[in-house]
Simulated scan of single mutants.
Amino acid sequence: MLHIRGMDDKRRFAERLKQAMREAGYDPRPSILEREFNLRFWGKPITFQGVRRWLRGESMPSQDKLMVLAQWLQVEPQQLRYGAADDPGVGEPPAAWRAEISDEERELLDTYRALPEQQRDTLREVVTALAVASGVKPR
């Protein structure tokens, strides 16, 4: 019974993810999800097969990945994970997870996104190395 419930949770998550992508103006395809997610996630990039499993309801992302998805798609993380809550007091306010970025940061991010994938990978490695050297734990 628990196994079936877990599968249902994953399938419902997949439907919520697809709907959030549509509402944000994206076609819910693995190639699009892989590209857009990896542009925003500073950890190890997720594979095409990994995001396809999310969209098929075969697996769910870890909390750090869910937070990136929620911020990108502009939905509440708990709504993406669990669906609409009956109790509006449950969960954290949007300000706790949606950080404002400056014009300078937005320009830097736009420039980063315009780079070819190989250069973005190199830049992520450089930033991670700088963070580690500075004592900052990369996410």
Rank of each mutant, 00 (worst) to 15 (best):
R53M: 09
T122P: 06
W42K: 02
A129P: 05
Q78M: 14
Y26N: 07
P93D: 08
K65M: 00
Q119C: 05
D110W: 12
A133P: 04
R139Q: 14
R81H: 11
L109F: 15
A20I: 10
E36A: 09
T128N: 04
R81I: 00
D121Y: 04
P45I: 01
R16N: 05
V127P: 03
P28C: 01
R11K: 15
R139N: 13
R29Y: 05
L73G: 05
L109M: 15
E34M: 09
A133E: 10
M60E: 15
A133C: 12
S102K: 07
P88E: 00
A129D: 14
E36V: 11
F13N: 06
M60R: 11
R56F: 05
D86S: 06
R139F: 12
M67T: 04
Q118I: 11
A70M: 06
P30R: 01
E104K: 12
E125L: 09
T47Y: 04
Q63E: 15
L69E: 05
R22L: 07
P88M: 03
R16A: 03
V75F: 04
M67C: 13
D64W: 14
R98M: 15
R40E: 10
G25W: 10
E58V: 07
Q49K: 15
Q119F: 09
D64M: 15
L108S: 10
E107K: 15
K44A: 08
Q49V: 14
G135C: 05
E36W: 00
P28L: 07
T111K: 14
T122A: 07
F41R: 00
L66A: 05
Q79D: 02
L123D: 07
M21T: 01
Q63S: 15
L108V: 14
R35W: 03
R40W: 10
D64Y: 13
K137A: 14
F13H: 01
S134I: 09
E125N: 05
M60C: 15
K137E: 13
W54G: 02
R139H: 11
G135T: 05
A131V: 00
T47A: 13
L33F: 00
W97K: 01
R22I: 09
L55Y: 03
Q71R: 13
L69Y: 08
L17V: 01
W54T: 03
